[in-house]
Computed example of a mutant assay.
Amino acid sequence: MSLIHPTALVDPAAELAADVSVGPYAVIGPQVRLGARTSVGAHCVIEGRTTVGEDCRIFQFCSLGAVPQDKKYAGEPTRLTIGARNTIREFCTFNLGTAQDRGVTAIGDDNWIMAYVHIAHDCVVGNQTILANNAQLAGHVQVGDWAIVGGLTGVHQFSHIGAHAMAGFGSHIAQDVPPFMMVDGHPLAVRGLNVEGLRRRGFSAERIALLKLAYRVLYREGHTLAQALAQIDELAGTHPDSEADLTLLSDFLRSATRGIVR
């Protein structure tokens, strides 16, 4: 208990690994579980059915696991799950899920979440993402692995952001952002392929070249979405090394529920 500050209020029913640290005046509720080596800063409130994985750093003044900002919520036993090795900076707010959706708000592993980020009910955030200061995710939003959401960006409910996509500062996202693309502005527009991000993640020149071809097919050659999908499928079939990338892109396009940014 030497890692728990004497002014912190930790419910006896909470499950904390032996090496969890909790700062001054933090409040930990009875249904909270915190994994090994996780640290909780001063004045944080972690409540509800919330699970946090190992090696997370939660900075001061965060609110995690509060009830959803949804008038339909009636006290159902919904959850918030946060994976391992996440950095969660000051004043972040993550809410529980709702019974109307999957019942859980889920954040994966190795995410870098900056100050004042809001993650609403039933959001799904993947792994290795960056959510910059004041990024705001409305309910039911999904963010793919390695995606970057710029500061002061608002994401409309039910919108999806694909893996390896990047949204610039102050974007207004109300449609689905396909994987690998860079978008910004209001109205939102695709500015190109996220080439530099892909290079930093070890994508080969050949993989990037094929994704550039797919980008041109989708955005620069005047095709309908159906025509573009047919051509992307053909590209995938003839380039085995890039098949997984192109399949990820085409599957996302086919499953888009709010239409894609185009």
Rank of each mutant, 00 (worst) to 15 (best):
E234I: 04
A209D: 06
A205R: 15
L253A: 03
E206L: 10
E196G: 04
T238E: 08
A230G: 05
D245E: 14
V190M: 06
N194G: 08
Q231P: 01
A214H: 01
T224K: 13
G197E: 08
S204N: 13
D245N: 12
R200T: 12
G202S: 10
R207T: 09
D233C: 04
D245F: 03
A244G: 09
P187C: 12
G202F: 08
L198P: 03
L193N: 01
A214F: 00
L211N: 02
E234W: 02
A209I: 01
H239Q: 13
R207F: 03
L235K: 01
R191T: 08
S204T: 15
F203P: 03
A209L: 03
P187K: 12
E243Q: 15
S255K: 13
E196V: 15
T238G: 04
T247K: 13
F252N: 05
L193E: 00
V217H: 00
L235G: 01
T247Q: 15
D245H: 06
A189H: 11
S250G: 07
E221I: 01
R200N: 10
L249H: 02
S242D: 07
R200H: 11
D241T: 15
A209M: 03
R216A: 02
S242I: 07
E221M: 03
A244Y: 05
H186P: 06
L246A: 05
H223F: 15
E243D: 14
Y219I: 10
G192V: 09
A189N: 12
A226T: 15
G222N: 07
Y219L: 12
